[in-house]
Design a protein around this nucleic acid. Structure first.
Lengths: 137, 137
DNA sequence: TATTGTTATACTCTATAACTATA
DNA sequence: TATAGTTATAGAGTATAACAATA
């Protein structure tokens, strides 16, 4: 039933991420948010104001792809842009954005708990450190 | 420097998979193969002949998306399709496909070793079991 | 009746090049 | 000179609906 690819770390990593992101996407759908949009709200909630470029660097999103992402959030009145100088814009959460953030935080907490609960207890503490070793820096 | 999302398992999972798949994609580029194509060759190498639907189920690829995938591999003369009955086709590796498979196996082995080597030793043995718990069945 | 292979289509995510305006 | 924000575009991955033919 299982195939020989299942023992490959890279294959397992890809399948697990695909499954979990599909699950998270389904849970976010009722809020009309995509994963990147929810991530952005969570990030802004902890860092106050950031520029588009700073957000992109933090989330691993290319600058060019930040434009439609911020555009959708602004169209939904969840964020606002205010000039810092004549070159940069500060992205901040609106009141509606902060209310949406609360929902995202609740939903995310439940999702992350459910994800961890699927991992056998003896492996659980090793999960995030192993993953972070693969991409940080 | 790090952001608060880094401690979330789902976020770390997604970033790690994104980074590792980008790395694998770069390594496969000289062979002119995409990740799904290389996965298909590896699968066929261990299972002899399979139908398109069986491959799709094994790799988590929708049947409709198997069509262009198999089309590219057939255009590259790496696979062949032979009728099983008047409804199904057996997908098999051609001689060129088997030669390419050897390259993919060598490359994949190196990639998987490099991936694991990035994970601190104490976390390494927990990695694949934790991931497989998230998506299998 | 369920499954296979297929077509067509659409949406999302990601990547690149180029441009302007400013620090 | 490097960076910010943007436009346009292309590629790749994924998802759905529908269809004819066959098991």
């Amino acid at each position: 039933m299982p195939n020989p690819l299942d023992s490959l770390p890279g294959y397992a990593l890809n399948r697990a991420a695909q499954a979990m992101m599909a699950e998270l996407g389904s849970r976010l759908a009722p809020l009309d948010l995509r994963i990147a949009e929810a991530s952005l709200l969570l990030l802004l909630g902890s860092k106050a104001a950031m520029t588009s470029s700073e957000i992109g660097r933090a989330l691993g999103i290319a600058r060019a792809n930040m434009v439609p992402l911020l555009g959708r959030l602004e169209a939904a009145s969840l964020i606002a842009r205010e000039p810092i100088d004549r070159k940069s814009l500060a992205i901040t959460l609106t009141a509606a954005g902060k209310r949406m953030l609360k929902k995202v935080e609740t939903l995310t907490r439940a999702f992350e708990e459910d994800l961890l609960s699927r991992i056998p207890a003896e492996h659980r503490a090793h999960f995030v450190p192993a993953l972070n070793a693969l991409w940080q820096h």
